[in-house]
Structure formats: structure tokens, C-alpha cells
Write a protein that binds this DNA or RNA. Structure first.
Length: 441
RNA sequence: CGGGGCGUAGCGCAGCCUGGUAGCGCACCUGUUUUGGGAACAGGGGGUCGAGUGUUCGAAUCACUCCGCCCCGACCA
């Protein structure tokens, strides 16, 4: 993509509407604009990142689940049946269509997927079944804030599992646990599983995945050692190994403020290992058994021939929130430093002198070379001062910058800069292959 | 919903106290010179001062009402 053609309205100054880092940087880097309180337009650069995050989630979730797409608008009837129409309270947006029929904008989808299940699955032989979708949700938050971190409209991945008994349901829960660890790991986030309350979703087993951040909304108390745990290479069908991993990770003391117990914390964790900070919830696992299958009559014929309510769980990831979370974890004073896995462009080319024919020739050559290698690239071909272009490339956080200017060309090289480390590699002009080696190596 | 703050050009702000018909920086347009970290000079365009009502000869400025946005708290992916 040529920068001269890209809709990328960056801001030099901090907008007054933003107070925290991720929000400020998303506005300044031209990723989002606010449409209304807690509701945002995703501009091209931000949307690319959002899509990249979605795809990381997709690739990992597809190993244990199937993707479908449910609507944003739901009929209020199923919510009345589950009892949540009233329980969910003012957070749920309710409205009527032209026939005075009551609808809601889905804050989550347990009712809808349970309804689909009950109408199409009759037997335990069709289980286990796990499905997910990535869809916009609306929760009319009391106080939206921090940009996409607590929006009213937000993109969520929500998965739902159906099993014939509790034992199988827990196995699915644990597979999700592993899947979440891998997903967050791919985004270069240290997500810590924390025992959690179940809130309006309900149920008796639940973990939140929290990333540590000073701007997080809840206090967390953890045993530092959990941060050193690696994610082992386990196959998803190896329930025993997965269980061992889950048990190991959940044996560490980790708690958000609502479940924190000071005495236990002091007893269980050495003083040097205690870490009290703030965190952002990016994922949540729930096992809730038959909480929805009973009222919505989602029953299966079980092995013994009796109809029994299906065992369920649900598993959410805040996709749009992750964009903010990743920025919070990966930025410096100049701007964003995207992990390559989610970066909107992998390489940025800066032609420092757009009226110099040698610079144009080399820039175009490298641009076309990288396009042919299927590398996402942003080519700043604008007639602007060098400082403007360098500063913007830093701000929007492109992991690799290629700088082409007369100074280098006269000495037979161009520069490849790593955004995160700041290291510059000088590459001879006719060795463009070296770009690939450095980026991938 | 309780507490606090804000609303003036695309962005950041001044002007308001003490009413006299709107200004600065950045950005934008034209030209010249520049060109390796947010250039210089010259010229130019852009505003129902969040909305309504009132007070007044006259309101961005004073009063009242409403709307919107942000921050702290209770709730949550």
C-alpha cells in the first residue's frame, strides 16, 4: 500500500478525549474514531489489526471448535425463557420493531445457540460439539471508558460447548484453557488465568485470563512464578496432559480483587514472589452445566435412553479490547511497537527524498520485490519532510522500517530498522534478499 | 446514578472573571527556498463560539434549561 493513497489520519498532538496510553495511541495512529460514547469507527489501519487478531483466534479455535455466525439482533422471547431478560438488567439494549415485537441487541449468545442446538441435536451421539462466532456485541455499560477497552459496542469471540456429561464438559473447558494460552501467547501477551466469579453468565467453574497493565480495571494479586511458565506442546486430544497443565497453572495463587484472600495470599506465596498490580480481562471461561439447557429445554437422549439436559460452557475473548491490550503491552515513547503477528503492515518503506531518481528507483524496486513475496508493506512515497515520515512510521508501529535516502545510496546501502530494538542493519543495494532473511530470521 | 471537569476552525488551546460581534499554534491550499528526526519565508481558505430561552442597545462572555464528551466510584469480554 502506498501511504499517499491510504486513509490514515494521524494526529501530532494528544486528543483531549483520551487519557490512557492505548486510547491515545489508537487515536493518534489513525486506527479509530469515536462515533458516540463507547462506540467506535475502525479506520483502515485499526481494522487491519482487528482482522489479524481475529485470524489468530480463528486458526487456534478451529482446532477444537467450528465457526458459525449468529446475528447481532435477537428475539426477546428466548431471553424471557432463560430468565435473563430481566436478570441482565439495563446493560441489555431492548427495542421494538415496526410490529411492536420486542428485540434485543445481543450482549452474548447463550440463549440463541442453545435454541439452535435444541432444535437440531437429539442424541448424545452427536456430541461433543463446540461452536464459536466472532460478532459484535452491545452492552449498555454504565460508564464506557478507555476507548476500545470498555466500549459499549465491542467485538467478541464467543464459543459454546455441548457435552453429554460433566466429565466431557470439563475436558472441553480445559481444551479451551490451553487454546486461550496459545492465542494470547501468539499475540505476545502474558495472559494469566485467574479464578473468577461467574456474574450474569452463571455456573460454578470459571477463569478469567488477565494481562497485567497499570491501566487495568481490576486489582490482581499473583505469584510471580506463573509468569515463567511455558506453554508445553500438547495435542488437543490428550486430555490427561492438558489437565496436568491446567492443574499446574491453577495451583499458583492468582486472584482479582473480588476473589482475593489476603491471609491465603500471605500463607501461600513468599514475600518476594508476591506481585500486586492491575490487569485487563481479555478472556473468560465458564462451565455452567445445565443453566441454559434446562429452561430452554435443550435435551439429548443419553446412553441410558433418557432425555437429559445437555452440559454446557461458554468461552469469550474480547477481540476489540485486545487491540488496546496489545498496545498497552507493546509501546514506547514514540508510539506503538506491534508484534509481527498482529501488525497492520510488516514492513514500512520510507523514501526520504521523493524527488531523487535513485531513491525512487530503489524504493519502487524494494516495494515491488516485497509485494511479490506477499509481505504486507506500507510505502511512504509522500513528498514530506523526513522527520514527519520517520515519526509517523514509529507512531503506527510497523515492526520493520526500510529507510532509503541519498546518504545510504551514495555509500551503496539502504537501512533496515527494527522498531522494537531500534537496531539498524545496513543492507547493500543489490542484496534485497537480505531483507527477507533478516525479517524472517 | 453520585462526585468532578470540559464543549470556541480538522487537532491542541487562549479569549469568558470585568458584555462591544473571535484569536494563537499545528494541520490545509498557492508560490519560492529547503530536504536523514515533526523545515523557512510570503500569500490564502476555513467558525451558526454544543443547542435553546432569557437579560441587554449589544452575548463566546451574564442567567436558566437541555444535549454531548471525559475523569473517579458501583458493574463487566
Amino acid at each position: 500500500m502506498r501511504r499517499s493513497k491510504l486513509f490514515l489520519p494521524t494526529l501530532k498532538e494528544n486528543p483531549s478525549e483520551a487519557s490512557i496510553t492505548s486510547h491515545r495511541l489508537m487515536l493518534r495512529a489513525g486506527m479509530i474514531r469515536q462515533a458516540s460514547s463507547g462506540i467506535y469507527t475502525w479506520l483502515p489501519l485499526g481494522y487491519k489489526v482487528l482482522k489479524n487478531i481475529e485470524n489468530i483466534i480463528r486458526i487456534e479455535q478451529n482446532l477444537i471448535s467450528q465457526e458459525l455466525l449468529m446475528p447481532t439482533i435477537q428475539d426477546s422471547a428466548i431471553w424471557k425463557k432463560s430468565g435473563r431478560f430481566d436478570d441482565y438488567g439495563k446493560e441489555m439494549l431492548k427495542f421494538k420493531d415496526r410490529h411492536e415485537h420486542e428485540l434485543i441487541y445481543g450482549p452474548t449468545n447463550e440463549e440463541l445457540i442453545t435454541d439452535i442446538f435444541s432444535k437440531n441435536i437429539m442424541s448424545y451421539k452427536s456430541l461433543p460439539l463446540c461452536m464459536y462466532h466472532i460478532q459484535w456485541k452491545f452492552r449498555d455499560e454504565i460508564r464506557p471508558r478507555f476507548g476500545v477497552m470498555r466500549g459499549r459496542e465491542f467485538l467478541m469471540k464467543d464459543a459454546y460447548s455441548f457435552d453429554k456429561n460433566k466429565e466431557d464438559a470439563i475436558k472441553c473447558y480445559n481444551r479451551m484453557f490451553l487454546s486461550y494460552l496459545r492465542i494470547f501467547n501468539k499475540m505476545q501477551l502474558k495472559a494469566i488465568p485467574v479464578a473468577a466469579d461467574t456474574g450474569p453468565i452463571g455456573g460454578d467453574l470459571s477463569h478469567e485470563f488477565i494481562i497485567l497493565a497499570e491501566t487495568g480495571e481490576s486489582d490482581v494479586f499473583i505469584d510471580k512464578n506463573i509468569l515463567n511458565e511455558d506453554i508445553p506442546d500438547i495435542k488437543y486430544d490428550d486430555s490427561e496432559e492438558i489437565l496436568k497443565l491446567v492443574n499446574k497453572l491453577t495451583s499458583y495463587y492468582t486472584a482479582a480483587d473480588d476473589k482475593h484472600n489476603e491471609n491465603e495470599y500471605y500463607k501461600k506465596v513468599n514475600e518476594d514472589d508476591r506481585l500486586q498490580t492491575r490487569g485487563i480481562e481479555v478472556g473468560h471461561l465458564f462451565y455452567f452445566g445445565t443453566k441454559y439447557s434446562k429452561p430452554l429445554d435443550a435435551c439429548i437422549a443419553n446412553i441410558d435412553g433418557n432425555n437429559t439436559p445437555v452440559e454446557m460452557g461458554s468461552y469469550g475473548i474480547g477481540v476489540s479490547r485486545l487491540v488496546g491490550g496489545i498496545i498497552d503491552a507493546h509501546h514506547d515513547e514514540k508510539g506503538i511497537c506491534w508484534p509481527e503477528s498482529v501488525a497492520p503492515y510488516i514492513v514500512g518503506i520510507i523514501n526520504l527524498r521523493v524527488n531523487d531518481s535513485a531513491c525512487i528507483e530503489l524504493s519502487d524496486k524494494i516495494y515491488n520485490f516485497l509485494i511479490n513475496k506477499n509481505i504486507e508493506i506500507l510505502y511512504d512515497d509522500r513528498d514530506e519532510g523526513a522527520g514527519i515520515k520517520l515519526a509517523e512510521m514509529d507512531l503506527i508501529g510497523i515492526p520493520w522500517q526500510i529507510r532509503i535516502g541519498p546518504r545510504g545510496i551514495n555509500n551503496g546501502f539502504f537501512e533496515l530498522l527494527n522498531r522494537k530494538s531500534g537496531k539498524i542493519i545496513e543492507i547493500p543495494i543489490n542484496e534485497t534478499d537480505n531483507i527477507i532473511k533478516n525479517i524472517l530470521g
